[in-house]
């Protein structure tokens, strides 16, 4: 009994933190575009790396 009273709330806390992590991910648009990243990661090269830093040119 004593064990379960501690174990279940701990388990629920872990679950709650997972849900919180998901909510954070959803709010930061991680689920916005599920197709492109799969292709984009194949294009790992300097042209992409330099994006957003036009000062270099």
């Amino acid at each position: 009994m004593t064990l379960i009273v501690i174990a279940i709330p701990v388990a629920l806390l872990i679950a709650a933190s997972a849900v919180a992590a998901f909510i954070w991910a959803a709010r930061s648009d991680q689920f916005e575009d599920l197709d492109t990243p799969a292709v984009r990661m194949l294009n790992e090269d300097p042209a992409i790396q330099n994006l957003g830093r036009p000062d270099e040119y």
Binding site: D33, D35, V39, A47, I48, L51, G52, P54
Partner: peptide, 19 residues
């Protein structure tokens, strides 16, 4: 997505293939 290299002043370009 490499467009910023071609066009000065363009900071970022992101493509969403699905849509």
């Amino acid at each position: 997505e490499a467009l910023p290299r071609l066009e000065r002043g363009l900071m970022n370009s992101r493509v969403d293939l699905g849509r």
